[in-house]
Amino acid sequence: MNNNTPVTPRPLRHLGNDVRHRVLSAAQLREHGVAAARAAAQCRPGGPWQQLLPGVYLLHPGPPTSEERLHAVLLYAGRPGPEAAKGVPAQPGSSPGGRPGSSSRSAPPARSSARPSSPYGGVMVTGLAALALHGFGSTPGLRELDLIDVLVPRTRRLRSTAFARLIRAHALPRPELVTGVPVAPVARAVADAVAELSDAAAVRALLTEAVRGGHCEPASVVRELSQARLLARPHVVDAVDALLAEGRSLAEGRLYEMVRTYALPEPVWNVDLALPGGPHLGGVDAYWPEQAVAVELDTRAPRLGGPGGPQDDDAVWTEYARKREHLERLGVTVLHLTPRKLRESLEQQAMVVGTALAAADERDPAAYVVVLPR
């Protein structure tokens, strides 16, 4: 064989049974022996193929399905650019076509569960399309979306085009596979969707469904919104306030459920504690006076980009710690339960509370405290 020997094409007749075969990149077509000139000829008016995006082909003449559009966007965004071929590392600063503020986004390094040979190169669907794949009912269906958002490394030199909108990130989060499609985690997808929405009702609906539907905790959503610098928008701040109230209400409901489902003694709910004739000690969500055990829901949600920044969260945490230390010096056991733990491991949290109640007889008697309704 020499350089003039033609490459034997891999047959294309089997393609069409799977979306990964109906939508192929130029590189994949070359693996089947289809040169660029032949692919272009197939896409002429009246031809059997069509070019959906630069370098991405649909191997039938009809309208693309939602699945085919998703696959096309991922193939377009995931193909390695010149910077990947040359091994150029990511550099600080914005990239052409990037969203304002995207250079400041940070997240855990990408650890895609996809195989190393994945044609997507680590990119993932985000925004409204990702939320639709996650099963959100408050988002338009995939067929109704004019644009599909996809997260890419910020060094990627491709630009948004046609129905593919690229969102650049300093570091990609770990994707979740939904029906074989790499999708951004819910909290990140919500933030990317909110960045493109100006309707207050739509923003509130997304945030509420994220929490009420059990997709994620309020803190993770607020953290992503903060990192995206979206908390300066009044309609987003209003939606966040409603989100935090929603999250706390759900956590309180799970706390009630825990006590009753696992037959724990009934506490007094939502009370303030104080020394007799002395200072106020703080409020707790549940208190067992005979055992001197208190439960406090940790529903803090830091607004890292809002007024006061991280200092606000530090101040809140300092107050939490001060209250806990004061109560424990008085002999009161304080348990901090998070909404996530109550949602994911209710039985385990019931065991933690039950153990603290059972251990009360082995501890020194606690100081007398006054229980006041909130």
Rank of each mutant, 00 (worst) to 15 (best):
G278D: 03
W317H: 13
E67R: 15
N270H: 13
R363N: 02
Y120S: 12
A77N: 06
S106V: 09
P373E: 02
H215I: 01
Y120W: 14
R254N: 03
M1Q: 01
L147P: 03
P54G: 11
R159N: 04
P173C: 02
R303C: 06
R233L: 11
N4T: 04
R44L: 07
A251V: 00
A263S: 15
G46C: 10
L273F: 07
G135Y: 04
S112C: 04
W269T: 03
G306T: 05
V34Y: 05
R30K: 14
L147N: 11
G308Y: 06
A171Q: 13
E176P: 00
A294V: 14
P310V: 07
R13W: 12
P9C: 14
R303W: 09
L133V: 07
L207A: 03
T179S: 15
P109V: 12
P108H: 03
L250A: 09
L346K: 07
S226G: 15
V152D: 05
Y368D: 12
L243I: 00
P140W: 10
A239W: 07
P96H: 08
G101D: 04
L225F: 01
G122M: 05
V123W: 09
G354I: 09
A107T: 13
L225R: 04
A27W: 03
G309F: 08
E196W: 08
P45L: 02
H215V: 02
V150S: 10
D313L: 09
R329Q: 13
W288M: 15
R229Q: 06
Y120Q: 10
D238H: 03
V181E: 01
R105Q: 08
S160G: 08
A132K: 12
V178G: 08
A367T: 07
E290F: 10
P11T: 09
R115V: 02
A367M: 05
G46R: 12
H32K: 00
V332L: 12
V221M: 02
E246D: 12
T161P: 01
E224D: 11
K323G: 03
R79I: 02
E67F: 05
M351L: 06
Q51P: 05
A35G: 14
L75P: 11
F163W: 13
R204C: 10
G33Q: 06
R340M: 02
H235S: 02
C216E: 15
G213I: 08
A27D: 10
H14K: 14
R204G: 13
D238K: 04
L197T: 09
L158M: 07
L346T: 05
P108F: 01
G253K: 11
E347W: 14
P218R: 12
T161F: 02
A129R: 01
R363G: 02
L250Q: 11
P302V: 01
V181C: 10
T261Q: 15
D272G: 12
A37H: 14
D238M: 00
V211P: 04
S160D: 03
L70W: 05
G308M: 08
A210W: 09
D199N: 15
V332I: 15
L147I: 06
P279Q: 08
L128Q: 10
P339G: 12
V211L: 04
N270A: 12
